[in-house]
Design a protein around this nucleic acid. Sequence first.
DNA 1: CCAATCAGGACCCAACCGGTCCTGTTACGG
DNA 2: CCGTAACAGGACCGGTTGGGTCCTGATTGG
Lengths: 154, 154
Amino acid sequence: MLRLSKLTDYAVVVMVRLAEVSPGSNPDVQTSPGIAAATGVPEPTVAKVLKTLAATGLVTSQRGARGGYRLARPLHEIPVAEVIAAVDGPIALVACVDGSATECESQGLCPVRGRWDPVNDAIERALSGITLADMREAAVPPMFRVPAFLPAAE
Amino acid sequence: MLRLSKLTDYAVVVMVRLAEVSPGSNPDVQTSPGIAAATGVPEPTVAKVLKTLAATGLVTSQRGARGGYRLARPLHEIPVAEVIAAVDGPIALVACVDGSATECESQGLCPVRGRWDPVNDAIERALSGITLADMREAAVPPMFRVPAFLPAAE
DNA sequence: CCAATCAGGACCCAACCGGTCCTGTTACGG
DNA sequence: CCGTAACAGGACCGGTTGGGTCCTGATTGG
């Protein structure tokens, strides 16, 4: 249940990687192929995710040669809710949440008419309280952290 | 995002209807066709949902002639989380939550290894705090409440 | 004994998601 | 000034999964 798309998962991975950018290294931006190599996520998918994130302003992009992506804000200022909303669309568990009044065919007797709203709100709040920084800190013991290498393909 | 299946929505509708059972009327159980007629949800779908709910013990069933379904517990004792878990399976946002260690192909560098757990837990808690009774009370002004009639089909 | 109703499958269709690719457009660097 | 590297933003296609229907038992009341 509550299946959120794999793309969202990738988005988190990519953004965390974006934050782990070489401390004071050459460029302050990272390219799609670079991130793909570092994370193991297929390159086209990385590009797609990055483009989506850039469209919503979660990351900023630098076009042209020597271009790349960069975090718009530090990890601890980015709630998971924003990432999810950016990739998967707005937080909404069921089809008839608010906007679409024309949806319900049996509108007269639909007993949940907007009833999921408190649930949505509760989840929204829960998700807004967790930032990407929290996700980086938590879980995974440091011993499992890999420095980021490996060409991913073959 | 966070798309939960339409079946879950139906489940809530059906269970609320099950609770709105005629106060002290003829049978204390309701049949699938009856609920379908009252809610507008297609009858086979209602039957399917009811069977699933019965399998998880959220509703009890009476077989044979004059049989039907009945709530196992009052609405205010049933958190939405239980309904969701019953219909849509366990609460898990991403594929690699805990059990499956063989999932991650690029296991060595998967940077979110179990990182969604706190998020899952937060949602789980949020969902456990809301009961079906809350959903019935909230939203929808009483003026929109319909007594339940209409054969649904034509 | 018959009819009504639940039980539990199998099954099919459609929508959506994941993933790839292609064609601009921008800007750095020589 | 030109070539190249990288983002932008589509279109597109295939696989998976959920939504929905139906059929065949099993059970119980009249």
